[in-house]
Computed example of a mutant assay.
Amino acid sequence: MKTENHTTVREFVFEGFSSFHEHQLTLFIVFLSLYVLTLAGNILIVTIISLDRHLHTPMYFFLSMLSASETLYTLVIIPKILLDLLGPSKPISLAGCATQMFFFITLAINNCFLLTAMGYDRYVAICNPLRYAVIMNKKVCIQLVCGACIIGLIVAMIQVVSVFRMPFCITKVAHFFCDIRPVMKLCCIDTTVHEVLTLIISVLVILVPMGLIFISYILIIFTILQMASAEGRKKAFATCASHLTVVIVHYGCASIAYLKPKSENTRDQDQLISVTYTVITPLLNPVVYILRNKEVKEALCRAIGRKLS
Rank of each mutant, 00 (worst) to 15 (best):
H6V: 08
V9M: 07
F12Y: 04
F14T: 02
S18T: 04
S18F: 05
S19N: 13
L25P: 10
V30R: 08
L34N: 02
L34C: 11
Y35T: 01
V36Y: 13
T38A: 15
L39N: 07
I45L: 15
H56S: 09
M59N: 03
Y60A: 04
F61Y: 15
F62V: 00
L63C: 03
S64F: 04
S67W: 04
A68E: 02
S69E: 10
L72P: 00
I81Q: 04
S89Y: 01
K90S: 12
P91E: 13
I92Q: 10
S93L: 03
A98C: 03
F104N: 00
I105C: 00
T106Q: 07
T116A: 14
A117Y: 11
D121G: 04
R122S: 01
Y123T: 11
A125L: 14
Y132N: 03
Y132A: 08
K138Q: 14
C149G: 14
G152A: 06
A156I: 07
V161Y: 06
S162Y: 11
F164I: 10
M166A: 00
F168E: 02
V173Q: 05
C178I: 03
L186D: 01
C187Y: 09
I189D: 15
V196I: 13
L197E: 06
L199A: 13
V203C: 14
L204R: 01
V205Q: 11
G211R: 02
I218D: 11
L225P: 05
L225K: 13
A228G: 09
A230S: 13
A230H: 07
G232A: 06
S242Q: 05
S242I: 11
S242K: 05
V249S: 12
Y251S: 00
Y251E: 08
G252T: 10
C253K: 05
A257Q: 02
S263P: 05
E264V: 15
V275Y: 05
T276G: 03
I280F: 12
T281G: 06
T281Y: 15
L284W: 12
Y289C: 00
K297Y: 09
E298M: 07
A299F: 04
C301G: 08
G305E: 04
G305S: 14
R306T: 05
L308P: 07
